[in-house]
């Protein structure tokens, strides 16, 4: 949301008309959220409705985008990913990558919960791809929205993102991405609704494991004392045949298990690889 506002301000400083808005969904902090940006070279934007399809998809989260989100990109569009390794897929769009989380770590840009905040580094990449001669405007927008050491670090992150972004070219072995129609497409959402707002569908269809940036990996040191299972907010650590098992389908990667574990080095938090 902040990223969208800063990018809007960057476009505005470069002389464009802009409109930027978040989409508040029901998920709490940690779940992916979306924000949208419209820009126009010539006139004020009058569109007051949601964005169903986009020309540019910017994925700030290091987690790979879902087929539903990829399905919102128009053919010929652009996808900007916060990602260091190649994205081993192709589709009817260009793909650019920027190691934004790494840039954030290098510059000590962390959330209050300790997560690297790669949003401004991603914006550096966006500006390079979308706003001619826009880096100075981005730096101004960052300085206007932030203060002190945070502003200084993010200005560096913006420059780094600008410098370290690259479009990737398809190579042999890339597989086509899976595309699904966007979740808000009215035509795709004509399902039968009950008369009353009574919810009976088990939440296990919601795979919150996609939220996690890090996941706990149990090592050989684990004594299966099960203390981690007692304090797991998701209740997804269980004891099976005398050993602990984490259900990564739902693990949100909070890291409480590692903190409460009484055994040294029994749980290691490791980045979720794509």
């Amino acid at each position: 949301m902040l990223a969208s506002q800063i990018l809007a301000e960057t476009f505005a400083r470069a002389g464009f008309w802009v409109q930027s808005f978040p989409e508040f969904k029901a998920e709490r902090r940690g779940a992916p959220i979306s924000a949208f940006l419209r820009w126009d070279e010539t006139s004020r934007i009058h569109r007051r409705y949601k964005v169903q399809e986009c020309d540019v998809l910017v994925v700030v989260s290091p987690a790979p985008p879902s087929p539903e989100i990829l399905g919102t990109v128009r053919p010929g569009g652009l996808i900007v990913l916060n990602r260091e390794p190649r994205f081993p897929h192709t589709g009817p769009f260009d793909i650019a990558r920027v190691p934004a989380s790494r840039i954030a770590l290098e510059n000590d840009i962390l959330s209050s919960e300790g997560r690297p905040m790669g949003n401004v580094a991603v914006l550096g990449a966006c500006v390079r791809l979308l706003v001619p001669d826009g880096l100075a405007f981005l730096e101004e927008a960052v300085a206007a929205r932030m203060s002190g050491a945070m502003a200084d670090a993010n200005v560096v992150a913006a420059r780094e993102g600008y410098a370290r972004c690259a479009k990737q070219h398809a190579v042999a072995g890339d597989t086509p991405v899976e595309l699904s129609p966007g979740p808000e497409h009215a035509s795709a959402r004509r399902r039968s609704r009950p008369l009353f707002a009574v919810s009976t569908t088990d939440s296990r269809g919601n795979h919150t494991g996609t939220w996690s940036l890090d996941r706990p990996v149990l090592t050989d040191e684990c004594t299966a004392c099960a203390v981690c299972a007692l304090f797991c907010p998701e209740g997804v650590i269980s004891k099976n045949d005398g050993s602990m098992v984490v259900d990564y389908l739902y693990c949100k990667g909070c890291g409480i298990c590692e903190v409460v574990c009484p055994v040294r080095n029994a749980i290691a938090m490791e980045p979720v690889s794509a």
């Binding site: 779940a31 088990d202 996690s212």
Partner: peptide, 12 residues
Amino acid sequence: LLPGNSACAGCG
């Protein structure tokens, strides 16, 4: 409380 709920990661 079932898996797949939308509490924040680490929700006390």
